[in-house]
């Protein structure tokens, strides 16, 4: 009885896992087919001869190299910048005592209720008045601060006892030194978690980059891929090859840093 239940569990979980993995498998499989193979019925599961050339062809068919560089720049600067502003703010909210602290904190907590999609229109107007549309500035600036990150980091900083802070101060450490040499290293796992989640979010972001870039040279990978669908037409092998190289970098990040991603999400769950 117990054994049967256990077998049943594995059967269901395996079936579910197959459904989850199937689109990825199908993407890879199609990306390595010849054009006639892509439309063959019954479908070809594993192509006779793997057409690695599809990747080269897809990469050349649109300025994917440029998109890739754009995505790397935007993701890196956004993540580093946001981390910097958030660490400073979280430290102030967690360890410093000053007038207006709680009021500001409450106001920002309130703004988290607002759907970000609402802000797109005024932000677009602001950036076009600054003549920043179609520049890295437009892609990066609005994302250099995130109250969600501040909030998460503040929770972690709060869990470091105030005594540590006072002890460091008595030893003559400045606030700045305490923050970067003691508090940040002590909160390494949370910082890694928010960093990885931010990298994934930036890399995959679509609506904002779509709106602020109409110059082909400024597109990020997801926007470039979307534009490519029109050029690729019915050449599904090329389209799947292009989709693969948009997806692969984050899959690699995920495989290596899975522990932190899961921990980051679990944490957000515990707080709620």
């Amino acid at each position: 009885m117990k054994k049967a239940a256990s077998v049943l569990r594995y059967v269901i979980l395996t079936l579910g896992a197959l459904i989850m993995i199937l689109p990825f498998f199908w993407m890879l499989s199609t990306s390595l087919k010849t054009q006639p193979e892509t439309v063959q019925i019954p479908p070809v599961w594993i192509p006779k001869q793997l057409q690695w050339g599809n990747y080269v062809e897809a990469f050349k068919a649109a300025p994917f190299a440029r998109y890739f560089v754009n995505s790397v720049i935007v993701t890196t600067v956004t993540t580093v910048g946001q981390l910097f502003t958030s660490i400073l703010a979280a430290f102030a909210f967690s360890k410093l005592h000053f007038w207006g602290r709680n009021l500001v904190f409450m106001i920002f907590l309130g703004t988290m209720m607002i759907p970000g999609e609402m802000l797109i229109i005024p932000n677009f107007v602001t950036l076009s008045n600054m003549h920043l549309v179609n520049t890295y500035g437009a892609l990066i600036l609005p994302w250099l601060a995130s109250f969600f990150t501040v909030f998460t980091l503040r929770q972690t900083f709060n869990s470091v006892p105030d005594q540590t802070y006072y002890a460091a101060k008595i030893d003559g450490a400045s606030d700045w030194r305490f923050l970067w040499h003691i508090l940040v290293p002590m909160s390494k796992s949370t910082i890694t978690a928010v960093t990885v989640l931010q990298v994934i979010g930036s890399w995959n972001a679509f609506m904002w980059p779509l709106i602020v870039t109409n110059d082909e040279n400024m597109r990020t990978l997801p926007v470039g891929l979307q534009a490519f669908t029109t050029d690729a037409g019915t050449n599904y092998a090329l389209l799947m090859a292009a989709s693969t190289f948009v997806i692969i970098p984050m899959v690699i990040v995920y495989i290596f840093l899975q522990k932190y991603i899961i921990a980051g999400i679990s944490n957000s769950g515990l707080k709620g």
Partner: peptide, 26 residues
């Protein structure tokens, strides 16, 4: 208080420009 606000400043500049102001504006 001056110190606290200085630590908040970078975040405040960005969020006021791209979050708070646009909320009111929209």
């Amino acid at each position: 208080t001056i110190k606290g606000w200085l630590y908040l400043l970078p975040m405040l500049v960005i969020t006021i420009t791209f979050n708070i102001y646009p909320i009111i504006k929209s």
